[in-house]
Amino acid sequence: MSASVSLFASENSWIETDAVAQCHHVAALDGMVHVAGMPDLHPGKGAPIGAAMRSSVLYPFLVGSDIGCGIAVFPIALKKPSPERLAARFPDLDVPLAPDADDPAWAFASRGKPVPAGYTEGLGTVGRGNHFVELARIGSIEDGAHAERLGLAAGALVLIVHSGSRGLGERILRAHTEVHGAGPAADPPAYLAAHDDAVRWGSLNRRLLAARVALALGAEPAEPIVDECHNLVEVRDGHYLHRKGAAPGDGRDVLIAGTRGTPSFVVAAHAGADAGWSVAHGAGRKMSRADALRRGRAKHTVEELRRTPLGSLVVCGDRQLLFEEAPTAYKRIEQVIADLVAHGLATPVAVTVPVVTYKTADQPAEAPKRDRRRSWARP
């Protein structure tokens, strides 16, 4: 008998039938108790993204390879936040850092603790896909009491970091799937121990990324006011609660990401058991990457995608990624938030507006080609 499935979205939300079908497929797995689909639900590789799945059996594939992926928000103080000037000062976050006590970013982020699992590959890098580091300003305050508690004020600047455990989570999942495929964990405590390392690694990496950017922009690094993981499993009430693209919503503060061309929302989450104690993690894709690339190239130029309608700039040297991650490839974040509010899962606290969004380092400009027709005549 299949587990129950609840979908926390309205008729106005864009929810693909394939994503709903994946929820019911997961609900039929042995030991599954309940599947909750968030309003950003969309199809994933074998399991839905934007879902919380509760079971008496631990299934590593339901969490996926990017264990520990999450979003953190850091306060930052800057004078005259010109997008052009600040975009040029962003560091190359594709270049990893070695743990070095003399590096101020590492010294601040690590707090003297070793790297979880001793995994240093990709440390301090943001990754590809929908990961990003964004300088944003608080556009409006939606709930004064919660905003005051978090220290948020209209016009203030924040750094938003969306990244995960890089290759560590992939290595953990591969070790399982090479032996068990999509089956359950043969040794749940061993998987959970490795999983917890990846969750800690992801949180450390978000702190390191924020510290690198803050220092490069001439600001002091700060501790996060929000840092929630949305790819993880936790033991709750004797069950395994798998979250894939769903943020913990049981009394937590969460940033729900829009796109590089739309606002994001800080919310105070208060979801219950029916929702898997979870809320959405972002706008959710409505186009595959292939569709976004094909449609985007027909409608936009690279230059158009580097500056958003909000006036913000996008740092992205990968042209294909610019199209794949275009704002039009995602659902309306306002509808996602409205659905969470309508279902009593979250209270909007503040709206953030992009100033500079970093995806991957800009490529150096090509040197002008030599004019061979005239070069022979030069003295």
Results as ranks from 00 to 15, higher is better:
L29M: 15
A338R: 08
V353C: 09
P91F: 01
P368I: 13
A51Y: 00
N205R: 00
H242A: 12
R89V: 11
K80F: 09
V235R: 15
P224A: 09
T120R: 09
I333R: 01
D362A: 12
H131D: 12
T328F: 14
H195Q: 06
D66Q: 05
R174S: 13
I160R: 10
G155F: 08
P104E: 09
K79N: 13
C69N: 00
Q335W: 11
V158M: 08
V336W: 01
G183P: 02
V63P: 00
A338S: 09
L241I: 01
I49S: 01
L241G: 01
L78A: 03
M1C: 08
L217N: 02
F61P: 06
V315T: 04
A194W: 07
G282L: 07
L157G: 10
L340W: 07
K113T: 13
R89G: 06
I141M: 01
G122C: 06
I49R: 01
Q335T: 10
S288Q: 12
D187G: 07
G68W: 03
V179C: 15
G317Q: 12
V158F: 02
V20Q: 02
R171P: 10
A98H: 10
R297V: 04
G124K: 11
R373N: 11
L204P: 00
D92Q: 13
S4M: 15
Y59L: 06
H281S: 02
R200T: 07
S203Y: 03
P96Q: 07
F265C: 06
G249I: 00
R137C: 10
P221I: 11
Q320R: 13
R372W: 11
R166Y: 05
P104G: 04
V95A: 14
P379K: 15
T17E: 15
R85Y: 14
R378V: 14
A350C: 10
P96D: 04
V233D: 01
M1V: 14
H195Y: 13
R207H: 06
E324W: 02
L209P: 00
R243C: 02
R378Q: 14
S82T: 15
W106L: 04
Q22I: 00
N12M: 14
V161Q: 08
G183E: 05
A271C: 03
R297P: 02
H270D: 05
A72M: 05
F61Q: 10
R378G: 11
